[in-house]
Write a protein that binds this DNA or RNA. Structure first.
Lengths: 214, 214
DNA sequence: TGAAAAATAAGTACTACTACCTAGATAAAT
DNA sequence: ATTTATCTAGGTAGTAGTACTTATTTTTCA
């Protein structure tokens, strides 16, 4: 007799969560142990009940999906993670793979895809939304350098990057921090070097696009 | 005896749509006539069955929520519209109110909010997510000038704006269009004037952020 | 056909940011 | 106690885009 797959599910959209639980409960081989509506709940439930697979939304209050995964690996969890998200951006996807996420499906996918994904991931295989899978081809060259290097930034640099993401100019940042505009410009350059950004306003664009990571 | 409220629902996320239909069907005073997974389907269903209320996702393939509403008003539809979306951006919300959307709720809201919203809107009253309702206070001063003025752009200007949104520099745009960089710069300035944008790289940011409207 | 709108292009001045350099002050590290 | 990292700030040069101007050609349409 085949063992059932134990699941924990987390999504902060109650209606979506309800739909998801209903869909999964239709399949007798899947066993939803518990569900959560934020990252911290999810983390605690996964650590407590040690399910085979956890389905996580990326955008959640408290801890986001990435943070939950990081904390899980700090606790040496063996639960396989599926990200179920609306983010089709290539770098979000790449970052997810980088931290060991096994499944990546888009919320717009059909329920069958989700079931298929859970079963595949439970066998410790990857399952990626067909829409996204094109990105896999590019991935050999892609290293997700920029976002991983955010952690290399110093406190001051992060602070300034945050202000850039709020569309402040170097002049405005200099004024609020009571430092010279030249100092701000130096920090900008150092940030650019660490994140491997080049060219006019590429730093501004990066900051705005990755506001949520700062 | 109170008349039932007739509904059409559209969302391109099948799981969310399923959850939503289930939630709504639990209430006997609500009557889901049909549901759609893209904008065109939704438009046709609403025009055909003339429901009291339609719940629309903003991001849908084919026609988005805004386009559906515009086409409905061209056809003098009296169906009240609710946007059910993950967009909490102030200007998306303001634009929605501008085109006559009666309800605006976030997907992260609980099912009770959605029911409440449907019933309120059916009585031709507005219902706005409490999270969003703060924006109402600012709204007197807000005019949504920039986005409404996108329509004032000429063909060439839209073309160039689209390329700016793809992070092309003026030089690159000039090369792909076989025109002088000075011409591109002139177009940029004209776009800035029409959209009332000022300052360094504000046009670039606007273009990137509003890519979906172009 | 004649006026208006749109697309083209250039002049000049200015602002913001990038690029790469040196260098002093200060604090943490081991 | 000396190295290392961080924050500070300036020099100089270059690129991209903004701001405002004039002006020619082409298209549109009334």
């Amino acid at each position: 007799m085949k063992k059932n797959i134990k699941l924990v599910i987390a999504d902060d959209h109650p209606v979506f969560l309800k739909g998801l639980i209903d869909v999964i409960r239709e399949d007798n081989s899947l066993d939803v142990l518990s569900y959560a509506s934020d990252g911290e709940q999810a983390l605690n439930q996964i650590l407590a009940s040690r399910p085979d697979v956890a389905i996580l939304d990326i955008n959640m209050p408290g801890l986001n999906g990435f943070e939950v995964v990081r904390k899980l690996s700090e606790n040496k969890s063996t639960t396989k993670i599926i990200f179920l998200t609306m983010h089709r951006e290539e770098d979000v996807f790449n970052k997810a793979l980088d931290i060991g996420v096994m499944g990546y499906i888009l919320k717009e996918n059909a329920s069958e895809d989700i079931m298929e994904c859970v079963k595949t991931v439970a066998e410790t295989k990857h399952y990626i939304s067909p829409i996204i899978s094109d990105y896999l081809i590019n991935r050999t060259s892609y290293t997700s350098v920029k976002k991983n290097n955010i952690e290399k930034l110093t406190c001051m640099e992060k602070n300034i990057l945050k202000q850039i993401s709020n569309k402040k100019t170097s002049k405005e940042i200099a004024e609020t921090l009571f430092i010279s505009i030249r100092t701000v410009e130096n920090h900008r350059m150092n940030i650019c070097n660490k994140l491997e950004l080049h060219g006019c306003s590429s730093l501004l664009l990066f900051a705005v696009e990755n506001k949520h990571l700062l």
